[in-house]
Structure formats: structure tokens, C-alpha cells
């Protein structure tokens, strides 16, 4: 790690002021930040420790939303009774992620901003447009088994590695953020940026801006939802493919459906066309497979990750049929 200044403000107001300094970044659980600082991938001159700030560690229900404080720990949210009963996909995406120790440390605000696990991003001896803009991408033409097949660009094929954000993408989610410029609300679909020409820009937050809350609009889609995750080992591994599926059924017919895809895309991915194709259809393994094929129709594969397309299609089928059992 390179030396850094460390500040631990006592209030959100003080934190926002401290984050206005050049290059200052927030740290809470630290599970991504410290890891990447040890690798010299991140070299922030100043850390603002927001982990102990009051008032951001609760999950609350309002009339129309479930509101997550940014400092709620992954483990606490995973065990929350409201999520387990009414939004199982949001609970499952948490407890199927990382390890118990990491879930005890990592906060929800940091979790959605988790950086890619692309090995070329994590190793400073390789070229990476995300780490050093304009330097090139050693994943394209390298070992790219873990990389994305949706939403990539000529400059970056890294996959978004997280789980919870994939489940959030399946619902109507917003994040509240604050900076010295004031508070604002960002639609979750606008939070993560596809690589395009600027893969170094991974999220829409501005310098010095910090997430305070994640808000999920209440929906009947929550009850019959699931998060299905396929990985190289049975636990404590990133997704090769994952699907958050949520359903409202009218008998055997799909009244409403949501599909979020993980492990296969540059950002938490919502498969809108696949959803539209399912609405009004009977839900069978065959119609579910057609939805999966629609979701991956525009997939672009590389030397080692073509398997993610058939795997992703099957994962869509499994998730939808599993969600159906809860409808």
C-alpha cells in the first residue's frame, strides 16, 4: 500500500466535507478497497472512514419502498425477515455472495460499487484500460474465461462481479447520494456505466459523492423471486452466470416478470426483451428457454467464455422455474 491520510469523521456532514478533498475516497467495510490498495491498483491519497457514521445502518419500510442504509452489513441484510419473506432474491443474492466474514464486513453501499475481478485489472503488470486509460486490454486475446459476453466494448470486457446489484437490477431501485453539491437520487440502471470508450468510469457518482441509501420500490414481484447462481465451486466463488428472476403469475400465465443477469455482463444486467417476450405466455421450460435465448441473443464471446451463453440460457431456465414454485 502507498501511504495515505486517514480521517474518521463523526457525522455525514463532516464526511462530505472531508470527501471534497482531491482524491479522497470513502471506506467502510474495506473489503474491496484494502485488497486493491495492497495490489497498488487503487492508490487513494486519503481515506475517509465512514464505517462508523450514525443513521445509515438500518433497513426501513416506508409506504412504497424498502430503504437500505448504505452501511448495513451484507450479513444483516441477508438475514432480514422482510427480505426472506417478501424479497427472497434480495436475501439469496447476499448470502450466496462472498464468505461469512466478508459479509460481516462489507456494507451494501460498497457492495454495489464492487470493482471487477478481471485478473488483468488486478495485476499492475498487465495493460488495462480500466486501470490505466488508453493503455490497452490484455484480457481481449488473453485468458478471458471469466469475462463478460454482454455490454462489453473494444476497450474492456471485464464482468461486473457482484450479486446483490444483479437482484437490485431486477426491481425498481434507486440510490440516494450526497456530496457538497447536495443530495440527489440516481436510478439504479444509471448507476453502473458500460465500458464503451471510457472503461475507467465505472459508476455515475461524482468525485466526493457517497451513497447514503438504496431504495427498492415495493412490488408483488418480490414474493416469487429467486437468485440462482452458478459457479466453479459450490460456495465462496464469483458467478460464472447468475440470474435474479421475479414473477407475478396468473395461473400458468406470466403476468409480470423481471430478469437480472450476473457474471455475464459488464454491469448488473436487466434482460428487458426477454421479460417482454414472456409476458402473457404460459411459463414452461420451453418458454423459459426462449427467454434465455433472447437474453443472450446479442452476446459477443471471446476465446474462452463462449460457454457462458448456453450456461446463461440454462441459468435463466432454472431461475424462472424455481421462482415459479414460489408464485
Amino acid at each position: 500500500m502507498l501511504p495515505f491520510a486517514y480521517e474518521k469523521p463523526k457525522s455525514l456532514d463532516d464526511a462530505v466535507k472531508a470527501l471534497a478533498d482531491e482524491g479522497a475516497v470513502p471506506i467502510a467495510g474495506g473489503t474491496t478497497m484494502i485488497d486493491l490498495m495492497k495490489l497498488y491498483v487503487l492508490q487513494p491519497p486519503k481515506l475517509v472512514d465512514i464505517g462508523g457514521l450514525p443513521g445509515l445502518g438500518e433497513i426501513e419500510e416506508t409506504d412504497d419502498a424498502v430503504v437500505f442504509g448504505a452501511l448495513v452489513r451484507m450479513a444483516d441484510a441477508a438475514e432480514h425477515p422482510l427480505l426472506k419473506s417478501d424479497y427472497p432474491a434480495l436475501s439469496e443474492a447476499l448470502w450466496l455472495a462472498a464468505s461469512p466474514q466478508i459479509r460481516n464486513m462489507a456494507t451494501l453501499g460498497g457492495n454495489v460499487l464492487q470493482r471487477t475481478r478481471c485478473p488483468y485489472f488486478r495485476d499492475t503488470s498487465y495493460r488495462c484500460n480500466r486501470r490505466v486509460p488508453g493503455s490497452g486490454c490484455d484480457a481481449i486475446g488473453g485468458i478471458n474465461r471469466l469475462h463478460a459476453v454482454l455490454g462489453t466494448s473494444e476497450t474492456c470486457i471485464a464482468s461486473y462481479p457482484g450479486d446483490w446489484a444483479v437482484a437490485l437490477a431486477a426491481f425498481d431501485t434507486e440510490v440516494d447520494a450526497v456530496s457538497r453539491a447536495g443530495k440527489r437520487t440516481i436510478a439504479f440502471a444509471d448507476l453502473h456505466l458500460r465500458p464503451d470508450d471510457h472503461p475507467e468510469r465505472v459508476h455515475a457518482l461524482k468525485e466526493g459523492e457517497v451513497i447514503t441509501h438504496v431504495r427498492v420500490k415495493k412490488t408483488p414481484l418480490g414474493k416469487a423471486s429467486t437468485y440462482y447462481k452458478v459457479r466453479d465451486r459450490e460456495s465462496y466463488a464469483f458467478a460464472l452466470a447468475s440470474v435474479a428472476a421475479a414473477l407475478v403469475m396468473d395461473g400458468e400465465t406470466v403476468k409480470d416478470v423481471r430478469l437480472g443477469l450476473g457474471g455475464v455482463a459488464s454491469v448488473p444486467w436487466r434482460a428487458r426483451e426477454a421479460e417482454d417476450g414472456l409476458k402473457g405466455q404460459e411459463l414452461t421450460p420451453e418458454t423459459a428457454r426462449r427467454a434465455g435465448e433472447t437474453a443472450f441473443r446479442d452476446a459477443r464471446t471471446y476465446d474462452h467464455n463462449a460457454f457462458k451463453v448456453p450456461l446463461g440460457v440454462e441459468t435463466v431456465v432454472e431461475a424462472l422455474m424455481s421462482a415459479k414454485t414460489r408464485a
Binding site: 474495506g30 484494502i34 466478508i102
Partner: peptide, 30 residues
């Protein structure tokens, strides 16, 4: 591993298991 992947550094912080290799000592104050 010193990167939060193996669990060898697991300790309890306020009764909860955490990874001491990804925890700054200064952040463990209190």
C-alpha cells in the same frame, strides 16, 4: 493470502467474525 480469500486471519470484532487482513488497525479502534 493477505487478501481476504483464505480466512486464516479470522478474528472476532465485537463478537462478529471478520478478516483482520482487510481491516485497518485504526478502523478497529473502539
Amino acid at each position: 493470502c493477505n487478501h481476504g480469500q483464505c480466512g486464516a486471519c479470522t478474528v472476532h470484532k465485537d463478537g462478529v467474525r471478520v478478516l483482520s487482513c482487510l481491516t485497518l488497525a485504526v478502523a478497529a479502534e473502539g
